[in-house]
């Protein structure tokens, strides 16, 4: 099968250097670089993570932004965010950034809403219940 994205082809055609030392690729383009063992742990997704996922999918279905918009923000966050934030932490940041850019709401509205949410309680369950 002629597949330009076939990893084997790609891997053999490229120098195997860590992404950070190779100016021809960005940090997220990590195929073929060196790394430690694959982590074996898995976790079930929390409700807030599922909601982030749902909001990203729905934003696409509603035409607010595409997967490319999501990925642009994720990739621009850089390697440090990849190492220090969890997957859906990065996704919610990208979701929010795209909505700000598209004018769904303003930075001021976001700030006010986050304050309001924080004031509702100490746990996710408390804060997620607006009514």
């Amino acid at each position: 099968m002629a597949d330009p994205h076939d990893g084997t082809e790609q891997g053999s055609a490229r120098p195997f250097a860590p992404a950070s030392s190779d100016p021809s690729r960005r940090w997220h383009d990590m195929g073929g670089t060196l790394a430690g063992p694959v982590p074996g742990d898995e976790h079930d997704f929390a409700l807030w993570e599922k909601r982030v996922d749902a909001l990203v999918i729905l934003s696409g279905l509603k035409g607010v932004f595409t997967v490319d918009g999501l990925r642009r923000v994720l990739e621009d966050m850089g390697e440090e965010a990849f190492e220090t934030m969890t997957y859906y932490e990065r996704w919610v940041a990208a979701l929010n950034q795209n909505h700000l850019e598209q004018g769904t709401y303003t930075v001021a509205e976001l700030g006010a809403k986050m304050e309001e949410v924080r004031a509702r309680g100490e746990t996710y369950a408390d804060a997620a219940d607006a009514s």
Partner: peptide, 19 residues
């Protein structure tokens, strides 16, 4: 912080009629 952002983003999307 990120959970707060999820709740805020979701509620704003609802209030603005996106979803």
């Amino acid at each position: 912080y990120w959970q707060v952002m999820e709740i805020a983003t979701r509620e704003l999307m609802i209030e603005k009629g996106v979803v």
